[in-house]
Design a protein around this nucleic acid. Structure first.
Lengths: 336, 336
DNA sequence: GTGAAAGCGCTAACAA
DNA sequence: TTGTTAGCGCTTTCAC
């Protein structure tokens, strides 16, 4: 990096070759002699040659960059996913471009179209909670833009998907609570509309059935905004207070932390200690109080897997792909 | 977005103009008649024309993208900074490309050079803790790559810098502790080498002086790895245990959470309750236990400010800039 | 006020 | 096996 960027032409001139030969040599083409390849490679390494990605992208209609669309970056779960994405992209030489929607469908669309006009090679998306009309995404994909969805996936789209095995996670949470001696288990859930929530609720019910426990609709409270508004949680909790329960399953990150915050705020609502199991990807559960058992999603893995699938799809260049739905496990982490 | 990307040529053909005229019209050049401009603009809007950023970048040596280099993305503080950066970039129409170094100087350099070869327009960097030789950064800047440093800045570089007012933050933390009745205040510090740490230590001392308290070297423990290794913290804490102190100032994010984790692990080390003040940008301090007072950096603001300065510098196109050092305040958040 | 042409750095079809 | 040429989509100098 001790001087300005070398180009193919520069190298060609020095070695008395043509730019195309140099190009081919660098791409290890079979039609170039070993001797020439060696020469080119040697010199290229020496001057630290880097192909100009803009030029290459312009030519190849490829930018070697992938876009991420999430609702918020400053979020334990998403930032861990992004970490995973970056780690894969780094090794495969793709740039990672981020964008956030703040849960706005309009902003989501803006970003997606922007990525498109930038010849971004592919997209990794977790849908904003507000989005409903996804037809524009389908038409994009039809026109050849690979999109891999993770965490929050739109309905009925043909694409790779990487999600948490929500049903199983909820099921196991119940098993855990029962093992701890709980007989009446409450649940704090997000909006019934979200696929995530539905699956977790289903797993919750199955978990109860497996333990021959009755499902009591009163013991489930729904938060339309998934805990984005603390007031929602406060309300839910005050409703719970009148009921008798000895364990609770919190089915979302914000619900978990919101629940704990509410307990702090209204200590009398927490008359007796109960067993708490909740989704959260915070790294700091071990210093939370009261103690909870964390349902930790494989966020990093999710990012990795999604990025791998995306890059694979990108590099298969429009060949028929058979779309996968990858289910990732959660980990129950019990505070000591 | 209902068909494939239009090009200048497409528009030119339809309107019976030359591509160059269309280009000029779109860039609002004075040498194009109002009438033509109107025509072009109208049609361009109609077909939702977007200039191909790769082609433009290749030509203009500009990519309308800025790069972020941080040690880790999945980190409360940094992800909040990135949030701030994105919010500015979004409005100014720049893409945000992320990269992480995992504290490796080598990886840092790799990323920076990569950004350079990608014609990234500018960089936002928080140095990795491992980096020492920054001469390559200087030569980069000399060759016209704008870099704005935030949080962790290299020594002696001429550039914009956005950092926390560390001295003041530490000073105020001490005032706070004294107001709470503390007489013997301990401090857990990062490596003496880091500028951040030095400033916080200095503020700590000044704070003591202002309260006519004596600075006792024994009451300060240094963690070479800033708390990255829990063992470091455990050791420091066990040393503290033998001393008599009634308040502690934790001068870094990982130190704060690590300290709390250690208290949980070795409850006997926390013989008597003491007042705790510590840096942390976690949103969950209110559910930590024991209760602490959080020193919260203006992370979002830091990202915003840094991005604003960077884009301003980019768009001033190599004009002489007079470099600013922006000091941001912290907020002390007391648990209820 | 508009157009023709060159060129940014790269790849690939075609020639030799 | 290597070189020549054209062209990706854009901007800009130079001509008209």
């Amino acid at each position: 990096m001790s001087q300005d960027q070398y180009t193919l032409k520069d190298i060609a001139k020095v070695l008395n070759l043509s730019p195309s030969t140099v190009s081919r040599a660098l791409r290890d083409s079979h039609e170039i002699s070993e001797e020439t390849k060696r020469l080119v490679l040697e010199y290229a390494t020496k001057v630290n040659y880097r192909a100009n990605p803009l030029a290459r992208g312009l030519k190849e209609r490829k930018s070697y960059s992938i876009g991420i669309v999430v609702s918020e970056i400053a979020n334990n779960f998403f930032s861990q996913v992004i970490d995973g994405i970056e780690s894969v992209a780094y090794h495969k030489n793709y740039q990672v471009v981020i964008s956030q929607t703040n849960e706005s469908a309009e902003r989501e669309r803006f970003h997606v179209e922007h990525f498109y006009s930038r010849s971004t090679d592919g997209l990794l998306m977790a849908m904003s909670s507000e989005s409903s009309d996804n037809s524009y995404l389908e038409s994009l994909m039809e026109r050849g833009m690979p999109i891999v969805f993770f965490d929050r996936i739109p309905k009925q789209v043909k694409s790779h998907q990487v999600i948490t095995d929500n049903k199983r996670a909820a099921y196991e949470s119940v098993q855990f609570l029962v093992k701890k001696g709980c007989k009446r288990i409450a649940m704090l859930s997000s909006s019934k509309k979200l696929s995530n929530s539905q699956e977790r609720l289903e797993g919750f019910k199955l978990g109860l059935i497996a333990q021959h426990l009755e499902f009591d609709e009163n013991l489930v409270q729904y938060c339309e905004y998934g805990g984005l508004k603390q007031s929602e949680i406060d309300l839910a909790i005050s409703r719970f207070a009148e009921l008798d329960y000895d364990g609770i399953f919190l089915s979302g990150d914000k619900l978990t932390t919101g629940y704990l915050q509410a307990l702090r705020k209204y200590p009398k609502l927490a008359k007796k200690p109960i067993e708490i199991v909740g989704f959260t990807n915070s790294n700091l559960v071990d210093i939370f109080s009261p103690k909870i058992t964390a349902v930790r999603q494989s966020a990093f893995e999710m990012g990795k897997k999604a990025a791998e699938l995306l890059i694979e799809q990108i590099e298969s260049r429009g060949k028929e792909v058979d779309f996968k739905t990858v289910l990732l496990p959660v980990e129950l982490i019990e505070a000591e």
